[in-house]
C-alpha cells in the first residue's frame, strides 16, 4: 500500500517533492498504515527524552555501521535490523533527526544503498517538530517483527570509494566541510577532534559549500532558487554534472547529497563516505590547501 505524498506548495518547486514531508503532513498521517516514522540523531539519548509518537529509533553509530570493518552493515544484518524494527520492504519511511537532519539524511542514504523505495525526510527535523509544540512521547512503539528480504547493497550508484574519487579529480566535487577544514587550517571539525586526519586541506578541484548553506534557521531546506544560487551560480555546478560530495565521515555530505539529488535533481550524485578521515590520512594522495575553490 502506498502512502500519499505531501503535495503542499512549499515543496512543489523541488525536483523530487515526494522526498519531503512537512510537520503538518506528518502530524496528520501518524496513524496511516504502511508509514513508519524513524528518528535518527547524533545524540543517542535524545529519542529517549521524547519522540514523535510511534517513531522507531535508529542509531547511526551502533546500528548502521559494521562493528568490525569500516563499512555499512551487511545485507543479512540490514535485513535483520529491519525485521527487528518492524519495517517491511514496501513501507513508506519518514526519517527525522537532530542537527537539521544530518543523521536523518545519512540514514536515508543507507536505506537507498539497500534500494528501499519510498524514504522521505521530515523538513525541519526534530527541532521544528518540537518548536511547533507537536506531540511527543517517551513510550516506545510496540511493532510486530516483519520479514524483510536480504537484498544486495548497491555501492555503485550513490557511493564513491577512494579510488573512484581519485579518478574523479577534475570533475565536479563538493566539499561540504567548514571553510577552516577546507583550507587546511583544521584537520577536524570544530569540537570533533576524534574524527581528525593526519593532513589538512581538500581534494584538488573541490568546491567548498558548507552543508548548512542548504538550510534555513528553523532547519528546513532553503527554496530551490536559493539552492540553485548556492550550488549552481556559486559553486559552478551545471545541469548534467557528475558530482561527488564528501565531508569528514560522510554524514554532512549525505545531507548535501540529498539536496543535490532530490531538491535540485542532479542524477548519479555520489557520497564519498570515506571522506576526509580517509583521504586526509591516506599516503600520497594529492591534497590542495588554501581557501580558493579548486
Amino acid at each position: 500500500m502506498s502512502v500519499s505524498f505531501d503535495t503542499s506548495d512549499r515543496f512543489s518547486d523541488f525536483a523530487h517533492p515526494e522526498a519531503l514531508v512537512s510537520t503538518d503532513w506528518l502530524r496528520a498521517n501518524l496513524e496511516t498504515p504502511g508509514l513508519v516514522v524513524i528518528e535518527c540523531d547524533e545524540d543517542v539519548l535524545l529519542y529517549e527524552t521524547g519522540h514523535v509518537p510511534g517513531a522507531v529509533k535508529l542509531d547511526w553509530h551502533t546500528e548502521l555501521n559494521d562493528s568490525v570493518v569500516r563499512d555499512y552493515l551487511s545485507p543479512e544484518d540490514f535485513s535483520d535490523l529491519m525485521r527487528r524494527k518492524g519495517i517491511s520492504r514496501d513501507d513508506t519511511l519518514v526519517i527525522y533527526g537532530d542537527k537539521s537532519n544530518w543523521w536523518a539524511t545519512y540514514a536515508l542514504w543507507v536505506f537507498k544503498l539497500y534500494g528501499h523505495d519510498d524514504v522521505r525526510i521530515l523538513d525541519g527535523g526534530r527541532d521544528k517538530w518540537i518548536a511547533e509544540a507537536l506531540p511527543l512521547t517517551t513510550e516506545k512503539p510496540d511493532r510486530a517483527e516483519t520479514e524483510y528480504p536480504v537484498v544486495t547493497r548497491d555501492d555503485e550508484r550513490i557511493r564513491a570509494f577512494l579510488s573512484d574519487t581519485m579518478s574523479h579529480i577534475g570533475k565536479p566535487m563538493i566539499d561540504v566541510r567548514s571553510p577552516e577544514e577546507f583550507s587546511g587550517e583544521r584537520t577536524h571539525m570544530p569540537s570533533y577532534p576524534e574524527e581528525g586526519a593526519l593532513r589538512g586541506g581538500h581534494i584538488p578541484g573541490a568546491a567548498n559549500v558548507p552543508w548548512a548553506r542548504a538550510v534555513n534557521e528553523d532547519g528546513t531546506f532553503k527554496s530551490r532558487s536559493d539552492l540553485e544560487a548556492t550550488y549552481m551560480d556559486g559553486a559552478g555546478l551545471r545541469k548534467g554534472d557528475d558530482i561527488i560530495a564528501y565531508c569528514r565521515i560522510g554524514e554532512r555530505s549525505s545531507h548535501s547529497w540529498f539536496v543535490l539529488t532530490y531538491l535540485l535533481g542532479f542524477e548519479g550524485v555520489r557520497n564519498y563516505d570515506g571522506s576526509w578521515t580517509e583521504w586526509g590520512s591516506a599516503v600520497r594522495v594529492p591534497i590542495e590547501k588554501g581557501a580558493t575553490v579548486g
Binding site: 545524540d43 539519548l45 529517549e48 537532530d98
Partner: peptide
C-alpha cells in the same frame, strides 16, 4: 544543553 542528553549524562 538539554538537547545533548548523552553529554549531560
Amino acid at each position: 544543553p538539554r538537547e545533548a542528553p548523552t553529554t549531560r549524562g
